[in-house]
Design a protein around this nucleic acid. Structure first.
Lengths: 341, 341
DNA sequence: AACATCTACTAACGCGCGTTACTAAAGCGC
DNA sequence: GCGCTTTAGTAACGCGCGTTAGTAGATGTT
């Protein structure tokens, strides 16, 4: 552990200290099975490594071996409590595969994002993961084609790149089904207000669950609003203040947790109780909201961690030259039970 | 942009294609002022680079030049909507300095964290940033001493390492002062319940502001609770249900936004209005809570982005061999105005 | 004793690049 | 035409390592 200020310790230093050649040190370090090196020599070398505080130079190693042993992950960071889970899933899996994961913020600025790709490629990443905070179509800079790439929580417009995305339809189904199982038949759906995959898919799942349960689909129970607490508040008011009280929904499925947060306010304002008078289910499982709302919000989680892990799996297959069975992989959105249903 | 599947394009390929030596290409790439290379030769080389899709190998370059041109950032990711801003600040600043920032999740698992240090050092990072999600003392693995390190939002127990932390005292002062300026004199303080720097510092700032305003400090107005919505709810109930109504606080300073969220519930339950009947101010500026609470929560922000940027600055000075003027730098916590005061 | 087979290594090359030292040719003054 | 400076480059080394080919000595075989 000598802290030699000037030059860093190299393999040659270790070899000299242990009285062997550099090649032998390399063999021991890489545990080459074909080289016959007796245990006492190995021990001597390991002792020298320890004593000198030797640390292999990953750059030089990558240069000689022609592979870097690490992946790059590019993700938008700005709005991103989510990105965190992707990172965790991806990193854990990469770690298990003996690979290392280096992360870069794409920052939604296209120029900086392209630069991030360039930098990662200059560092000779073996593969790249590109993750977004919300499920959507993306267009990658051309540089991205130089190395295996897997898209996480997004897909490219021409569908050529492998991707792993949440199963929005199944998620919408799961949420609605949970309310049906609790006895509800008139279920209001506060949907996101744009034609993004999340809005389209969840609506489809909602209708599918209702049909399956034999409940009739009432279009007036589906409203959409801005994906904010205010938007959720407004939409909930609209549903709750319907003329005919008998037609009021007994449960609300909210397109995301922020909207559910607004719906909570609207419900409480009217003196109704959750879940006794009206049940609420959210989507996204934003911890900061869902867990701290009172009562705790039952919601459907986006499987960020699982998607990150799956993305690394696919990257591993690709870099190993294995063909992928499917280009687009979907991951289930699990139900998170709290106390609002 | 030829996509040569097999071998990657090297500088020698470019040199051959442009009809010059590899050295000349290197000179053009690095824009060496001392080498006299006419514009037409430069243009020819640049054209070859473009045509062949050449991309320098950062590892080889680092090996030859003996510097990697990038920093590493290690941060806990698990609980971390916060960390995100540190990353943004650090990355932007590094970018501006011509350095690149590679990020790794420390994951709070000490073994994995030590491994992250090892990996980053093996990659020959020129400097390391270590960031935590909450302000506290940390102990770094011994490997961290091999290269300049700056701590962000934390400090090491023996105070030897440079660090940048939020000014908790000034933050507590700012929050309290804001309430005083709004005319409040009886200000309840729902503090965090442990002796962490945030709790100690903010209390100190709170008392300082009151003293300065000539208001007397009433110990019964200071309660502490768990740093959750439930904790905030309980503490708020305690303060609001005081025996003597005349001694009820007219404003609440909450140790964090989650607690403020709970306080909101307690206040609304009692039919009081924010900010008319009682003002509330939070701490942390957790966007997901503060911005979506109704009414929007006025709060004090932790300067994560600024701390990240400052950390990179210090790293830049350290790697350049400049001595730091101060080891511990504090950054102000700005007031974020919304509608709860 | 001569030869083949292991055991335990080592010498030397090349990965892609930055850098230093050197040179051949052109331009210039006289 | 000669020496001197400038222009426009190039050859060669080494960064720290993986890897291939080879070798000196010990052991077994006939």
């Amino acid at each position: 552990m000598a802290t030699n200020k000037g030059r860093r310790v190299t393999m040659s230093d270790v070899a000299r200290h242990a009285g062997v050649s550099r090649t032998t040190v390399s063999f021991v370090l890489n545990e080459r099975a074909d080289a016959a090196i007796p245990e006492d020599t190995r021990a001597r070398i390991r002792a020298s490594i320890e004593e000198l505080g030797y640390r292999p130079n990953a750059g030089a190693r990558a240069l000689a071996a022609k592979r870097s042993e690490w992946y790059g992950l590019i993700t938008e960071i700005v709005t991103a409590p989510f990105a965190v889970d992707v990172i965790k899933g991806a990193q854990d899996r990469a770690w298990a595969d003996g690979k290392f994961l280096l992360i870069t913020a794409g920052d939604s600025d296209p120029a900086m994002e392209a630069a991030a790709f360039d930098k990662l490629l200059e560092q000779r990443a073996e593969g790249l993961l590109y993750a977004t905070t919300w499920h959507r179509a993306v267009t990658l800079p051309p540089a991205a084609r130089e190395v295996p790439v897997v898209l996480v929580n997004c897909f490219d417009v021409d569908g050529a790149l492998p991707s792993v995305v949440p199963d929005e339809v199944a998620g919408g189904y799961t949420a609605t089904r949970r309310l049906i199982d609790a006895g509800h038949r008139r279920i209001g759906f506060i949907n996101l207000d744009t034609g993004i995959p999340a809005a389209v898919g969840r609506l489809q799942g909602y209708e599918q669950a209702l049909r399956e349960a034999g409940a009739d689909i009432d279009d007036t129970l589906v409203v959409s609003g801005h994906a904010t607490a205010d938007g959720g508040y407004a939409a909930a008011c609209e549903l709750l203040d319907r003329a005919d009280p008998g037609h009021c929904p007994t449960a609300l499925f909210c397109g995301n947790d922020r909207m559910a947060m607004g719906a909570y306010d609207a419900i409480k304002e009217r003196g109704l109780r959750i879940p006794d008078d009206i049940a609420v289910i959210g989507f996204d499982n934003q911890e900061l909201i869902a867990a701290y709302l009172r009562p705790g919000l039952t919601t459907v989680a986006l499987p960020f961690e699982a998607m990150g892990a799956k993305g690394v799996d696919m990257l591993g297959a690709l870099t190993a030259g294995q063909p992928l069975t499917t280009t687009q992989v979907t991951v289930d959105c699990p139900l998170i039970e709290r106390s609002s249903v």
